[in-house]
Design a binder for these strands. Structure first.
Lengths: 222, 222
DNA sequence: TCAAAAGTGTTTGTGGTACACCCATGG
DNA sequence: CCATGGGTGTACCACAAACACTTTTGA
């Protein structure tokens, strides 16, 4: 039993947000070995008196000052050689931070920076793999759930929503088809407010919290 | 750092197989407290010199004598109170054992038994939750991947395959539609062999290992 | 009156679903 | 020849995809 306790449990969290029509991840620059000077995703040991979810929420708050955003478990990484200091098992989480809350990186702001997931810097450990997996998972989820709203402010225009989808998926979408389908799904509704900008003002929409978040996809296999 | 090492890492494995047109899970009867006399899924501590995947494969082999079957990580459970003996974080895995290999339960066969997932006995810890989650995940995956074949022998008839799908999904499927769609997907091919039985002999099919296992589903959201 | 973004319908194709009868074999 | 399971095609409907112009506002 003593042997098994040599395994340390950490949580690492991939924090994603939309900034400047780009999908970005919050990274911290490592100040100590191993991988000194390289970038990593925020994380740390799970405390004895907190659940994994609580640990992930704590790490998120420490880095961003943000609470109560969409968080989900991604995967648990536990190969032998992933950390030269010892046997580490890390439970990776994904957090989606709404755009307006994501402007400042880090409360202690030491060396935390937002980086485009499309151009990741040199990263330590297996963290590049974890980030790429998170992005893949987010894209996948966009296709069959309503999770995209979690990257936007409480109210938003259809154009903003479409840009969010395009930014995450990395491809252009047809405006008319996008609007028809998103409205048919009945997960958003007009607030009655309008947003003025450069051209014609746009209707503002809000996410319907009562709508089912997980919409069932059509089967591929019978 | 000493504090954090009080967390123990285990792997638990939900082993599923088709038996008698029923979806069953391999459970062991607990011989010691806590939850003495209740049923649990196989599992144990992760060894210091094995990865999580290796640990899951080891547990699987110890219980069934089977290797090299479809295994995937399910979820990591880490609430504070899940084991009265201490702080346990368990990485849950799902294994799909092909029907012909699943006839014997346990090599040491102590108190391992196959139980229908549709009528689980009283289970200790949060293991009922884990099994139900595994079944949900399997159903979900059946809809957009080719994972169903993993529950059948190397060659099988279309009727057997359809029964497998029906057993897992818990609903009847249309024979003609099932056949058309499964063949269109090009993940199985005729072996040229026939299987004789009660009525007209049936063509035997095999899984095409070169076919992509993960087939992309159509998007729901644009 | 011009620039800039919002908003709006129709057609065409593909794929899902529902549905009933003949075929090959063994006893 | 009969019981048993294997194998086959079509018609309808719903939804996805492609596609271009008009509307509203602010400068």
């Amino acid at each position: 039993m003593a042997r098994t306790s040599d395994i340390f449990v950490t949580v690492d969290i991939v924090i994603l947000a939309l900034r400047d029509d780009d999908l970005q991840v919050l990274l911290v620059k490592r100040k100590n070995p191993p991988f000194e000077g390289k970038w990593a995703i925020p994380g740390g040991f799970v405390r004895h008196d907190e659940s994994l979810e609580d640990g992930a929420a704590r790490e998120l708050f420490e880095e961003t000052g943000v609470r109560d955003v969409h968080t989900e478990q991604l995967f648990t990484f536990g190969t032998l050689d992933r950390d030269p200091r010892g046997r580490m098992v890390t439970v990776a989480y994904l957090a989606l931070v709404p755009a307006p809350l994501a402007l400042h990186a880090g409360t202690d702001a030491s060396d935390a920076q937002w980086k485009s997931v499309y151009a990741l810097p040199e990263m330590g450990f297996d963290h590049a793999e974890i980030v790429n997996y998170a992005v893949k998972r987010l894209r996948y989820k966009l296709e069959y759930t309503a999770v995209g709203f979690r990257l936007l402010p409480k109210t938003f225009t259809l154009s903003q929503l479409q840009r969010a989808y395009e930014t995450v998926l990395g491809e252009k979408l047809d405006k008319r088809n996008f609007r028809r389908r998103i409205l048919q799904a009945q997960v958003i509704e007009e607030t009655g407010e309008m947003q003025s900008g450069d051209g014609r003002p746009a209707k503002l929409y809000g996410y319907r919290e009562d709508a089912v978040a997980e919409v069932k996809a059509r089967r591929l296999f019978p």
